[in-house]
Computed example of a mutant assay.
Amino acid sequence: MRPTGAAPRAAGAQGGAAERRRLPSYAAGEIEVPFVALPSAEVIPRDTFWEEHSHPTHELLWNQRGSSSVTVGARVWTITPVLGLWIPAGAPHSGWTPAGTWHRAVQFGIHAVPSISERPVAVGITRLLRLLLDRLGAEDLTPSERARTEAMVLDLLAPAENELLLRIPESPLLAPIVEAVRADPADGTPLAVWAERLGVSTRTLTRAFHAETGLGFSRWLAAARVQQAIGMLARGEGIEEVAESVGYHSASAFGAAFRRVTGMSPARFRDQ
């Protein structure tokens, strides 16, 4: 592919008409490719939604600049310059890429590269890995130089310890909550109020969130807010403005939530 997401609104569209791109769906290995690793790059000119598709090759996605998202089923991964996503061959996915994102991708032939995971998984994009991937894009590499570079890339590919992953509940019971939060992450409606509106107990809603996401409502809400904040930080917006936009009354409270989800401060993330 290129980057992807569930639907423009759900993946973080900023409004206005988005470009839609369609790519074919292939099973793993359905088309034989002559390469081990084939890189590509594109600065995305408009907000772009990539409709669901799949590749005959494994794919590594990351961004040289900006953030985007990839959706697989009910899971939405955020992609940044320091955290990419490995998508195994044949895995259906869609995605969202805001205008101005410098998108990077590498396709890996399954005849030469075993998948590092049976499912999509985050990959840390270290400085060394980035340099090696840049080198693969050089047109003047000799066959032996390319083979050595590919071997070093494969040695560095491994699942990351952390991933920017948001699981989207799919039950009709939770749909109104999910829709409200994804439309406006600053929505601060307490769970007790939602329970009253939906005619159930707060315990029922809590159990439903745990069953579908592995998180309680508060932690899921924090993850949804951080996912939105990442895109804003990647566009260079100020930390205090981002904090307010996603529902935090102070930059310090936002910073604490951001660190719990990502393992780093908003300032460090923006610098990277």
Rank of each mutant, 00 (worst) to 15 (best):
E59R: 00
E59A: 06
L61A: 09
N63V: 07
Q64R: 07
R65P: 00
G66T: 02
S69F: 04
S69H: 06
A74N: 13
R75T: 07
V76D: 09
W77H: 04
I79R: 10
P81L: 02
L83K: 04
L85K: 12
L85V: 05
I87M: 11
I87S: 10
A89W: 15
G90A: 15
P92L: 03
H93D: 07
H93V: 07
W96A: 11
T97D: 05
P98C: 11
W102A: 15
Q107G: 13
H111E: 09
S117D: 14
S117A: 13
R119N: 05
R119I: 02
V121F: 09
A122F: 08
V123L: 07
R130M: 03
E139K: 11
R148L: 15
E150G: 08
A151K: 14
M152D: 08
E161D: 15
N162H: 14
E163A: 12
L165P: 14
L165Q: 06
L165E: 06
L166R: 00
R167W: 08
P169D: 02
S171Y: 13
S171Q: 11
P172I: 03
P172F: 09
L173D: 10
A175R: 09
P176E: 01
A180S: 07
A183S: 13
P185H: 15
A186G: 07
G188T: 04
G188Y: 01
P190I: 03
L191A: 08
L191G: 07
A192K: 10
E196G: 05
V200G: 13
